[in-house]
Amino acid sequence: MSFDDEWAQHKATVESQRSTQMQLNQAGGGSGPGSKEKLHVTPSVLRGRAEKAENKAAKEFREAHKVAVSKTSEVSGSMKGFASDEALTDFIDSWKKGVRYVTGRIGNEGLAKTLRSSADSFETEEKDRKKSFQSKYTYKPGDVI
Rank of each mutant, 00 (worst) to 15 (best):
Q21M: 14
Q21A: 14
Q23V: 04
Q23M: 07
Q23E: 08
N25T: 13
Q26K: 15
A27V: 14
G29T: 02
G29W: 01
G30Y: 05
G30L: 07
G32Y: 05
G32S: 06
G32V: 03
P33V: 07
S35C: 11
S35Q: 11
S35T: 15
K36Y: 08
E37L: 15
K38C: 03
L39A: 10
L39E: 05
H40N: 08
H40C: 03
H40K: 09
V41I: 09
P43D: 00
V45Q: 06
R47K: 11
G48D: 10
R49N: 06
R49W: 10
R49Q: 08
E51C: 03
E51P: 00
K52W: 04
K52E: 09
K52M: 09
K52V: 08
E54W: 01
E54D: 12
N55I: 02
N55R: 09
A57V: 11
A57S: 09
A57K: 04
A58K: 00
A58V: 01
A58S: 04
A58P: 00
K59I: 07
K59W: 02
K59S: 05
E60V: 00
F61N: 00
F61W: 01
R62A: 13
R62V: 02
R62N: 09
E63V: 04
E63C: 02
A64L: 09
H65S: 02
K66W: 09
V67I: 13
V67F: 05
A68L: 15
V69F: 06
V69Q: 08
S70D: 15
T72M: 15
T72F: 13
E74K: 13
E74A: 11
E74L: 08
S76T: 13
G77Q: 04
S78R: 15
S78E: 12
S78L: 13
M79Q: 06
K80Q: 09
K80E: 12
G81V: 04
G81Q: 03
F82W: 10
S84I: 15
S84F: 15
S84Y: 12
D85H: 11
A87S: 11
A87G: 13
L88D: 02
T89F: 02
I92P: 12
S94N: 13
W95P: 03
K96M: 02
K97S: 10
G98T: 01
G98M: 02
V99L: 04
V102D: 07
T103H: 09
R105E: 15
E109L: 12
G110M: 08
G110Q: 07
L111M: 12
A112W: 02
A112H: 03
A112I: 03
